[in-house]
Design a protein around this nucleic acid. Structure first.
Ligand SMILES: [Mn+2]
Ligand SMILES: [Mn+2]
Ligand SMILES: [Zn+2]
Ligand SMILES: [Zn+2]
Lengths: 146, 146
DNA sequence: AAAATAACGCAATTAGGTTGCGTTTAGTTC
DNA sequence: GAACTAAACGCAACCTAATTGCGTTATTTT
């Protein structure tokens, strides 16, 4: 279940609580993550009509990640993709969602699959687990036919 | 359970059965996939001591993928990574493993996690599912302590 | 064996991501 | 609220994985 931004959230406060500078851009960027299941740099650029420098976007995303606001989502499409951390299941160093995600091979959109349940994290000796992701890929409704 | 190449497999025959040209390089490349859980282009290049042109490797991997011999493994490290298709669970258009895979964020090695079970594939209406992957990321035994 | 088809290697190109540095903005101290 | 410090920003240049074009070589088909 994703928190939507129409819950009247104070994004500046959330940034402050995570030790992230609350610039206009970063407040707006955090807002975007509450609207979209996941975002790539390209998608963020488009949302800002290419007015924000890509380097600024890259650095903001790294900063958000370091401060535990977002995490990477693995994919086969060779693009860095980020998703909002889930307060229930993500900690600063261990990220997971209890459900799977579907990534479209054509339009790159992501969809939550609430009825695909992720297994619980079990320690593996010697290994340090950072994240668990259940990833389905294919074609979404829009891209299904051609 | 992974088939090992010491089972005396005829790689040329496997290629032929999948409609892939059996060049010396491609026979050797297929052999590699029976040894290693997954491979990137860089890893393949190293295995061949950089004697094979990278374009040749890229095209061979695409060809193997199109013919249903290998499939991509999603990851967060922005590298195209391929793994041998599993005769039991992979078809030409639908790829999965019954177990999870661990990818090291440092050395990029992949490990099978036999006791992490993937959920079964359930159709989602409107969506065309190509693959299901359970991906764990973090640091492996070698890279755990910096 | 000859013809047709596909793989190969090289060079050039594309595209996602990164780095350095001077400037601007935000956070802090007085 | 002005002065100071630290971080974010934008630009240009750079890095590297991946792709494309094309002439050559190897494989497959007849
Ligand atoms: Mn997270
Ligand atoms: Mn497969
Ligand atoms: Zn789509
Ligand atoms: Zn490692």
């Amino acid at each position: 279940m994703k928190i939507k931004n129409d819950d009247n959230l104070d994004f500046a406060l959330i940034l402050a609580n995570h030790g992230v500078s609350k610039t206009k851009f970063r407040i707006h960027l955090l807002n975007l993550f509450y609207d979209k299941e996941s975002l790539t740099v390209k998608e963020v650029m488009n949302k800002f009509s290419n007015l924000i420098n890509k380097v600024t976007i890259y650095r903001a995303l790294v900063s958000f990640e370091e401060k535990g606001l977002i995490h990477k989502v693995p994919s086969s499409n060779n693009l860095i993709r980020y998703s909002l951390c889930n307060a229930d299941e993500c900690s600063a160093s261990l990220h997971k969602h209890n459900h799977g995600h579907f990534i479209c091979n054509n339009c790159n959109q992501t969809f939550c699959l609430e009825n695909y349940k992720s297994p619980d994290i079990m320690p593996i000796d010697g290994f340090f687990i950072n994240s668990l992701n259940l990833i389905l890929e294919g074609y979404c409704k829009d891209c299904h036919l051609h």
